Computed example of a mutant assay.
Amino acid sequence: MTQPLERVRVPSAQSETMTDQHGRSINYLRLSITDRCNLRCLYCRSCEGLKMLPHDQMLSYEECLELIAVASTLNISKVRLTGGEPFIRKNFLHFLERILDAHPQLDMRLTTNATLLGGKIPALKKIGIKGLNISLDTLDRAKFQRITGRDFFLPVRGAIDQCLDYGLRIKINVVAMKGINDDELAAFIRLAENQPLDVRFIEFMPVGEKTVWRPDQVWTSREILQQAQEVVQLKPVTESGKRNGPARMFEIVGGKGRIGVISPMSSHFCGQCNRLRITPDGRLRTCLFSDKEYRLRPILRSSKLGREHLRRVIIRAGKIKPMGHEILAAQGRQGSVCRKIMSAIGG
Rank of each mutant, 00 (worst) to 15 (best):
T2M: 10
T2N: 14
Q3W: 14
Q3K: 15
R9V: 14
P11M: 05
P11Q: 04
S15V: 05
S15F: 02
T17D: 00
M18G: 03
M18Y: 07
T19M: 13
T19W: 06
G23V: 09
I26M: 02
R30S: 08
S32A: 15
D35Q: 03
R36P: 10
N38V: 05
L39S: 02
L39Y: 05
R45Y: 09
H55E: 12
Q57P: 00
S60V: 04
S60C: 03
E66N: 10
A69R: 07
N75H: 14
S77F: 08
L81T: 09
T82D: 12
T82K: 11
G84Q: 08
I88G: 10
L93E: 13
F95R: 05
E97L: 12
E97I: 08
R98S: 12
D101W: 01
H103F: 14
L106A: 07
L110W: 08
L110I: 15
K120A: 08
I121M: 08
A123N: 13
K126Y: 10
N133C: 06
L136N: 04
D140W: 01
D140I: 09
I147M: 09
I147T: 09
G149Y: 02
G158E: 11
A159T: 02
L164V: 04
L168G: 01
I180F: 12
E184R: 02
L191K: 04
N194H: 11
D198T: 01
R200S: 02
F201Y: 04
I202D: 00
E203A: 02
F204E: 12
V207E: 04
T211F: 07
T211C: 05
V218F: 15
V218H: 14
V218M: 14
T220V: 13
Q226V: 12
Q229K: 07
Q229N: 07
E230W: 04
L234T: 05
R243V: 11
P246T: 10
E251L: 03
V253W: 06
G254H: 01
R258D: 00
I259G: 02
P264C: 09
M265L: 14
H268S: 15
F269N: 04
F269M: 05
G271Q: 11
T279E: 03
G282T: 08
T286I: 10
C287Y: 11
F289K: 11
I299K: 00
R301L: 04
R307L: 11
H309G: 00
L310P: 00
L310G: 02
G318N: 10
G318E: 06
G324T: 09
L328Y: 13
Q334L: 02
Q334R: 10
S336W: 14
V337H: 09
R339K: 12
I345T: 03
G347E: 06
G347D: 10
